[in-house]
Computed example of a mutant assay.
Amino acid sequence: MTNLFSVFDPSSSILNISFNWMSTFTGLLMIPPMYWFMPSRYQIIWNNILLTLHKEFKTLLGPTGHKGSSFVFISMFSLILFNNFMGLFPYIFTSTSHLTMTLTFALPLWLSFMIYGWINHTQHMFAHLVPQGTPAILMPFMVCIETISNIIRPGTLAVRLAANMIAGHLLLTLLGNTGPSMTYYLTLMLIIGQIALLILESAVAIIQSYVFAVLSTLYSSEVN
């Protein structure tokens, strides 16, 4: 089991510098073409995606949301999506499958929402602890449940993303390792299965980055 999970650990290094995390920064190479005078087709498609997300996040944030705050979630979506896709290439470490990365996203965001909410909208935050229409007897229990569910939010955000990234890659690795011991026909079926899993993983990469960004936006909208 240790050998199996060592695939997902940032262990390879050059001069004691962890080399696996380098894939996270390769996205910076894609930024210069954005400043060209004539946008490329890739740039037009990407702009359309970001515009759609911007409209959706603005709707989720509502009229009370701060102007420009949707761009924070769009940037986060872009970074997570890029890292999820990078992990599908051979010999590239998926940084979003590590809790170091996912918790770094989730925890500061949630903490900033909580600090902002409790300082500026204290009464509103207290009101959120008891859902509307709760009987007086159940109120203490509801406060406990709501408090716990609020505290575990950054953990669920981080673990959801990391677990989904690990699960698919682990399945691909396990199936791929059985290849050499198989017959010709079974290997052919295995290749078809691996391609299908790879397509599924591509969909998961998009969905998980979208889910992370949308849930962060919803947590933000609750504070206002």
Results as ranks from 00 to 15, higher is better:
Leu29Met: 06
Tyr91Thr: 14
Ser209Gly: 07
Asn164Arg: 09
Asn84Pro: 10
Leu188Ile: 13
Val223Glu: 02
Val130Ile: 10
Phe105Thr: 00
Ala196Met: 12
Met165Trp: 07
Leu111Thr: 06
Phe8Pro: 01
Leu174Pro: 05
Thr102Ser: 03
Gly168Asn: 09
Gly87Leu: 01
Thr24Ile: 15
Ala203Ser: 15
Ile17Pro: 07
Met189His: 14
Glu56Trp: 13
Gly176Trp: 04
His121Asn: 12
Tyr184Gln: 10
Thr100His: 08
His169Pro: 09
Tyr116Gly: 00
Asn48His: 07
Leu161Tyr: 03
Gly168Ser: 10
Leu190Arg: 06
Phe5Arg: 03
Leu171Asp: 11
Val130Glu: 02
Met182His: 05
Phe141Ala: 14
Ala196Phe: 10
Ile44Cys: 00
Met34Arg: 04
Phe93Glu: 01
Arg41His: 08
Leu79Arg: 06
Phe212Val: 01
Met139Glu: 13
Ser13Tyr: 09
Met125Gln: 07
Asp9His: 11
Thr64Tyr: 10
Met114Lys: 05
Ala162Asn: 05
Leu28Trp: 03
Thr147Ser: 08
Leu111Tyr: 04
Ser40Ile: 00
His66Gly: 10
Ser112His: 05
Lys58Pro: 09
Gln194Ser: 12
Thr64Gly: 07
Gly133Asn: 02
Phe5Ser: 04
Val214Ala: 11
Met182Thr: 07
Val204Thr: 07
Gln123Val: 06
Ile14Ser: 15
Ser23Met: 11
Thr156Arg: 08
Gly176Val: 04
Gly117His: 03
Thr102Ala: 01
Val211Asn: 13
Ala205Glu: 03
Met30Leu: 13
Pro131Ser: 02
Ile195Ala: 12
Ser95Gln: 12
Phe113Tyr: 07
Leu215Ile: 12
Ala127Gln: 14
Arg153Glu: 12
Phe71Val: 11
Ala127Arg: 13
Ile80Glu: 06
Ile80Met: 11
Gly193Asp: 00
Trp110Met: 01
Thr122Ser: 15
Phe8Met: 01
Ile17Lys: 09
Trp118Val: 05
Ala136Val: 10
Leu53Ile: 03
Leu29Ile: 02
Phe19Met: 14
Pro39Asn: 00
Met22His: 11
Phe57Lys: 00
Gly155Trp: 14
Ser75Asp: 07
Gly179Gln: 15
Ser18Arg: 12
Ser209Met: 05
Ala158Phe: 04
Asn83Gly: 04
Thr183Glu: 15
Ser23Ala: 15
Leu174Arg: 10
Ile191Phe: 12
Arg153His: 14
Ile119Met: 02
Phe71Ser: 13
Gln208Arg: 11
Phe25Ser: 08
Gly168Pro: 06
Leu4Pro: 07
Tyr185Cys: 15
Pro32Cys: 00
Leu109Pro: 02
Thr183Met: 12
Pro39Ile: 01
Leu4Arg: 09
Met142Pro: 02
Tyr184Pro: 11
Ser112Phe: 04
Thr64Arg: 12
Met30Trp: 14
Leu111Arg: 02
Gly117Tyr: 01
